[in-house]
């Protein structure tokens, strides 16, 4: 099967305070086909942003393989990374710190084309103008500085910058989380439209399940550095198999009081354990409403259940 991103048994450990390393990502495998959007959801500390950063080579993995467009970038040289990054680009969470405040947005958008020798002078300027139009801005905006734009407009600039090299994979790390509701809709529509037009694959990292469901083809649910479940979107939301997926979906308040108040959901008890000291066995067993004694001992492997892959003894 052809893939644009193939991650195999990825581990990313950070040195922890006082001894035990923080196992931010601990044995994750996943892949993305060309043109496909994979959603990566989970709560803070689950390792989803770490995977996003490792996938673009901004973070060196402890072990495992990360194959982007046929090249393994785990431990790759700066030269190889530079080549691969023509294929994979990133959109960050905070539109304010994503743009250099002392650089015009036109320079920022055209920078990758310029330093890679793909365009210069009038041709570069024309290309930047096209990119600005593609994301719903005007070519004459190119000479302005970031502070002259609103948050939503800045995120459009960031998207234009990421698209300049026509990447085969776009990694969005909480790309709409910092935006207001009405602006978020604009950016989501833009991402969906751009993907339809250019057919790039996306790794869409978010804590917001409704947003992930809206833009993704498949969804991977992470808990404490490991995959709990990975399944096609409709299967995952219609019939979540992992108790954590079920709890996560149940915890999203529906913006319709009639629906929301009719739901009978028992909130998940307890806190998220520390990734420096994850529970033995299934990492979710300390909060799991259906856990049995085996869950505290045996680590559940990811296995096929219907259309889904689930890491649960009871699924």
């Amino acid at each position: 099967m052809e893939t644009i991103l193939e991650i195999t048994d990825l581990r990313v450990h950070f040195p922890g305070r006082g001894g035990a390393p923080v196992r931010a990502v601990d044995g994750v495998s996943l892949h993305i086909a060309p043109g496909e959007t994979l959603g990566l959801v989970g709560e803070s500390g689950c390792g989803k942003s770490t995977i996003a950063n490792a996938a673009v080579g901004l973070l060196a993995p402890t072990s495992g393989r990360i194959v982007v467009a046929g090249t393994d970038i785990a431990g790759a040289s700066p030269r190889v990374l530079r080549e691969v990054r023509a294929q994979v680009q990133m959109v960050f969470q905070d539109p304010i710190t994503s743009l250099n405040p002392r650089m015009t947005i036109g320079t920022a958008i055209g920078e990758s084309l310029l330093v890679r020798g793909r365009a210069a002078g009038a041709a570069l300027r024309a290309r930047v103008g096209e990119l600005l139009q593609e994301v719903g801005l005007r070519p004459d905006h190119a000479d302005r500085y970031p502070h002259q734009f609103s948050g939503g407009q800045r995120q459009r600039v960031v998207i234009a910058r990421a698209l300049a090299l026509r990447p085969a994979l776009l990694v969005c790390d909480e790309a709409v989380s910092a935006l207001d509701v009405s602006v978020r809709a604009q950016i989501l529509n833009l991402l969906v439209a751009l993907q339809a037009r250019y057919g790039m694959a996306m790794l869409f990292v978010s804590h917001d399940l409704a947003v992930v469901r809206h833009v993704c083809d498949r969804v991977a649910v992470m808990y404490l550095g490991q995959l709990a479940e990975i399944a096609p979107r409709d299967a995952l939301f219609a019939a979540p198999r992992h108790p954590y997926t079920q709890a996560l979906i149940a915890a999203v308040p529906d913006p319709d009081p009639a629906v929301q108040r009719a739901r009978v959901s028992v909130p998940l008890v307890g806190e998220i354990p520390s990734p420096a000291n994850p529970p033995p066995g299934c990492r979710f067993h300390t909060r799991c409403p259906v856990a049995v004694s085996r869950c505290a001992v045996d680590v559940p492997a990811l296995r096929s259940v219907g259309a889904a892959m689930v890491a649960c003894h009871l699924a």
Partner: peptide, 13 residues
Amino acid sequence: LPYVRAAEMAGCG
């Protein structure tokens, strides 16, 4: 900051 990460991604030395 992300904009420096982005410059790395763009291919700047």
